[in-house]
Design a protein around this nucleic acid. Structure first.
Lengths: 325, 325
DNA sequence: CTGAAAGCGCTAACAA
DNA sequence: TTGTTAGCGCTTTCAG
């Protein structure tokens, strides 16, 4: 890679003259600028990013830690983050925690050496389960700005971008009730996540008549819920996460239940499975890309003003009705 | 962030002594090392990555350009890349081209300023369509090592990690033929991609009796293929991409065809849609994570030896039979 | 065993 | 308008 030094030498001018010319400084004469620009172009000069970073003490890079890259919801958030970052001339470095605390700690440590200007983070399932947020609050001491998205804890004081899970769940139950549904069952595969708890609370708040079934894993869910559907009267299923929704749908079809006549299904969505399910699931759309965009906006404004009070952005959901309702 | 300078000052030693001690150099006495390490720990010292990068002229970072983050296949590759990179103490920076040439160019330019040691790249659909690879071959002039994965062109001399698409398609048709299938139709939504062409060629090579239907988009596919299934005799569908497989499956079910009795379906897979389809699709598994891992291996070995001849790694597929065959 | 000094490539204050 | 110089934080050669 060609450097300022080499350009300067070849033109017989000083390094700072070249630097200023390339940054279009008013101090440099048009004539000099031109010849410098020409040579820079000829050699396809690009300022060494690492050197610029060191000198300016900013990396124009954001670190992103996501729990699970196979979850379409996070992929969409990531896409939103990437777009908004690119728009603002920021790069993103990604670390995947795979829902484990260790990996998340590693990711944070990875980012805590000046590689990034700020961090966007959705805590892992394990982090939420063991309720240990020290590695995150430590970021305050390290003076690394960060934003929590999707998942958060009251233990961590920070900017946040979240979904109104509680309200969405509540409203959905009310919606089903108004439809005349009497035997609603809510199913969940995310009982350990903060969002899972919020959604469950929303359900409970809306009605005490709803049966709530929460499962550790898909297998348990399939076995137990299959029996449940076979023996109990159910006219509506509300899935608190997309996987639960899809599996419930498939189980109902296996039992030859008529959807939506016998039983309606509405599911929180991540986007892809429900879109190509058959029949197409009615979903609560979470505007994931919006979450990503807002997270970037929030961290950038935090970067500009480190001392402003923390902010919580709430992204609203939308009920997208399709063939299962 | 605390620096070497500050540690040195507080202990009344030189910067280089601190540096050496922290790097566990044999030149430094145990005693000195201990007190330096203790202080570093107390202040939670972390070497400034940017400075280290500048000094060592290596960033320990790989740039990854993927065409589409919503495609589970690429997500899996990304996961493989991330794991293997982490294992080797490399970071990854991600740029998403969204299947457009412009975005891809931008990504490459983004990475061409010393931010990364090497680039992993799957060319965009548009790049393949207009057949313009100059921005990629330019990397040779810039002396930035790169590896193409999944998609490639003969126009670009480089290390590659690819799938044996041709053979897989060929073998699958043979497999269906041996099953006694007489009216096989191959469907594709990826006719413009190099892998799409390779798979089609594999089909053609295996048998001239297979009807091949290629479509521009999902809508056209749904309309045309629905009519086709209604009017033509079909006892096996071979989908050259997962989306085509899922849609074909749903269309067949809409027509109440018995699967797999009336019609067998096998599809190239990306992993997630087929896994949760009902009934579960038989797929050609592409070992995406393996592609990611091998790509990292390849670029790292290239980084070690810039002058070795280019290498092409072929990842084999596996036929995973489920309920649709 | 420890320290001084150079330098990675760049920006920017200051001097000329 | 241009150049000199210092310095970002670190590694490493060389001298002591």
């Amino acid at each position: 890679m060609v450097t300022l030094k080499q350009l300067a030498k070849e033109l017989g001018v000083s390094i700072s003259t070249v630097s200023k010319a390339l940054n279009d400084s008013f101090e440099i004469s048009e004539e000099t600028k031109e010849k410098i620009l020409a040579l820079a172009k000829k050699y396809n000069y690009r300022p060494n990013n690492v050197a610029v970073n060191l000198r300016t003490r900013s990396t124009q890079t954001l670190g992103v830690i996501i729990p699970n890259i196979f979850n379409h919801f996070y992929t969409k958030i990531l896409s939103g983050i990437e777009q908004e970052a690119k728009k603002n001339n920021y790069k993103i470095i990604i670390s995947i925690s795979n829902e484990t605390l260790d990996s998340e700690r590693e990711g944070i440590s990875f980012f805590s050496n000046g590689s990034v200007d700020g961090i966007l983070l959705a805590p892992s399932e394990e982090t939420e389960k063991v309720n240990d947020y020290e590695h995150i609050t430590d970021l305050h001491a390290k003076e690394i700005p960060f934003v929590l998205f999707d998942r958060y804890s009251d233990k961590v004081a920070s900017d946040r971008v979240i979904i109104n899970d509680f309200d969405s769940a509540k409203k959905t139950i009310t919606y089903l009730t108004n439809l005349g549904k009497k035997n609603i069952v809510a199913v969940s595969l995310i009982k350990n996540l903060s969002v899972g708890r919020l959604r469950r609370k929303g359900v409970q708040e809306a009605s005490s008549n709803v049966t709530i079934l929460e499962f550790e894993d898909e297998k348990e869910f399939e076995e137990v819920f299959f029996q449940f559907l076979k023996t109990e009267k159910v006219d509506a299923i509300f899935a608190l996460d997309e996987l639960a929704g899809i599996i419930a749908l498939n189980l109902a079809r296996t039992l030859s239940l008529n959807i939506p006549k016998d039983v309606s299904i509405i599911s929180f969505s991540q986007g892809i499975l429900s879109e190509y399910s058959y029949p197409k699931l009615s979903t609560i759309n979470q505007h994931a890309e919006e979450i990503g965009k807002k997270s970037v906006e929030l961290i950038l404004s935090r970067l500009k003003n480190k001392n402003k009070p923390t902010e919580t952005k709430i992204i609203n959901t939308a009920l997208d009705l399709h063939q299962t309702t």
